[in-house]
Nucleic acid binder design. Structure first.
Lengths: 338, 338
DNA sequence: CTGAAAGCGCTTACAG
DNA sequence: CTGAAAGCGCTTACAG
């Protein structure tokens, strides 16, 4: 057999078709559960395909059909375990359905997200999953102009035509603040990092709960633009008790900050929750292991990933999801640190 | 202008070529830093391309050239921060060089890795990055048969033709064990999870160091196949002090286990390091925040990612790296828990 | 240094 | 239900 000069040596659909004694097009249809092909032929083609170890070429398919099976999912940062969980849940739904999630990390930078979007969209993705609603105008237009089905994760909106799965950031911020109020704390601080849109929404929830209770004091809000970490949490706690010794509770915006805060309290010999109560957010791994165990808000990131992926699956199939906006519930986890 | 029926409405190279008044092929060359094209033409083509907002179609390019710019990188698990750091470092080198790292998570499962490999290799990747050497025979053959340049991360070997960047797992296991011996501990336990190949190599290093010192006791090795977590670390510590009260130090195979062990010691009222010393591995975020701060081994995952990516870049360019196997150093981090 | 032709491997209308 | 033709958007030899 003579190989043409540009041949890649790859097993192609033609090889399969030839082996099965049908035309290339029939082979193509047989392989995609084509309802229009005779059952016997389907079997013969599939047999030949496995026999030869045929693997379809995604590039050729994408080019011919002008769509791929890739699904970019853009998250802010993998060092936040929250997003690792989200990705895992998405993967569990999309991968078995024949789609390849492609992870993109924006580092909380809208410019970087825009660049990623531009690159990924060039791959004719089957669908798109992004985090939240805060992005550049150009990024917005890229998404809209691409015609690629998109589901927004983590936050929700009622805007028409937007598909999203998330939870109320501000309500969850209020809920923990209210819990602290209910436990009798009055000088409740809020310590946050990164200051991304969702963090600021939670701060808003904190504020409104305290204002409603007549306990709001702007000086107890400690907002740092640094990235979230245990070390930062420790520093924020130290700063709070030094500059505002009257503080009796600290609501940390993410569990890693709270872990750091809790350990810093140990180091300073401050009793928790006796001298200062400590609360976290997200219920990340290890929060139940802290001493004392950390009170926090459990966020439904696995459900968000799963339901978001399911919604996208429907959109990619041309179906209309029953709901275009799904708001899930958070769960207050009361442990010993408050 | 009449659109053909199957047109996708996309701006193509033909559009750019037409706008610049050259042929499609010249446009292609001009866009790829083609040295053979006149400087003036290059400028005209690039101008036209940006003018029209041309984005090359990766699928078409992959099909025509039989290679893409995708670089799959296969890691065991994202919930281990170690691999998040590794990915970040790889991304920082590959992305600016025009390659797209595609993250694949194997969940420490060789069968899953083989499946991922099969799928990713179909995409004609430009290069490949994998973790360690432990995989199915089929996976090995897939890699070899693909002809795709591959760099192995985390472990090293002298096998000819294999490109790798890592550190000596067993030596790092020995080093921490020796540190504990030097500090005067004699009943030193080893607590590990997951039991992946690298964990077992570190266990081997622990064993040989203790044997050399005449202190080895197999009953102090606690190997759990569960996945690593703070909660598991806590349980392992409890079990150790209950069944082997004479234990005076515990070397945890990963920092998250050590964090959990440290907190469990607090809970049980065991002084650290007075009653029992605790050491970790990897030097993950937060280890310096523990109370007492955790002694551990800092592993060079950022350097591994960076140098591994650079080595792959050379291979993808058809160059021969100066070294085919790079073994990096770990650094013992002595803090207060030992 | 530039271009006309052929081809990468698949799918989409269009016939039968 | 099956197939011959054309095409997706690009790059690779081959000429000039």
């Amino acid at each position: 057999m003579v190989r043409k000069s540009r041949s890649t040596g790859r097993i192609t659909l033609d090889d399969v078709a030839q082996a099965a004694g049908v035309s290339r097009i029939t082979a193509s249809r047989a392989l995609h559960g084509g309802r229009v092909v005779g059952a016997e032929l389907v079997a013969r083609v599939q047999e030949a395909a496995t026999q030869l170890g045929y693997v379809p070429d995604p590039a050729a398919r994408a080019l011919a059909s002008s769509r791929s099976t890739q699904v970019p999912i853009l998250v802010p940062m993998l060092s936040n375990a929250l997003f690792v969980d989200l990705l895992e849940a998405v993967h569990r739904v999309l991968y078995p359905a024949g789609f390849q999630p492609m992870i993109g990390v924006t580092h909380y930078d809208p410019a970087e997200e825009e660049l990623l979007l531009r690159n990924y969209l060039a791959h004719r993705p089957a669908g798109l999953l992004v985090t939240g609603f805060d992005r550049t105008e150009a990024a917005r237009q890229l998404i809209a102009g691409s015609g690629v089905p998109c589901v927004y994760l983590m936050e929700t909106t009622d805007a028409p035509g937007v598909h999203c799965v998330g939870f109320s950031q501000s309500a969850s911020g209020s809920a923990m603040t209210q819990h602290l109020l209910d436990r009798g704390y009055r000088r409740i601080a809020f310590a946050a990092a990164q200051l991304d849109p969702r963090t600021l929404q939670r701060a808003e929830g904190y504020r409104s709960a305290l204002k409603a209770a007549g306990c709001y004091d702007a000086r107890l809000e400690l907002l740092s633009p640094e990235r979230s970490s245990m070390a930062l949490g420790g520093r924020l706690l130290e700063e709070l008790v030094r500059t505002h010794p009257e503080v009796d509770a600290v609501f940390f915006n993410n569990d890693d900050l709270a872990h750091g805060g809790l350990l810093a309290a140990h180091r300073l010999g401050l009793g928790v929750p006796g001298r200062v109560a400590i609360a976290g957010f997200n219920d990340l791994a290890g929060s139940d292991q802290m001493v004392p165990a950390l009170s926090t808000v459990h966020t439904p990131r696995l459900e968000i990933g799963e339901q978001g992926a399911r919604m996208l699956l429907q959109l990619m199939n041309g179906q209309v999801p029953a709901q275009s906006s799904i708001e899930l519930e958070c769960r207050l986890v009361e442990r010993q640190s408050t």
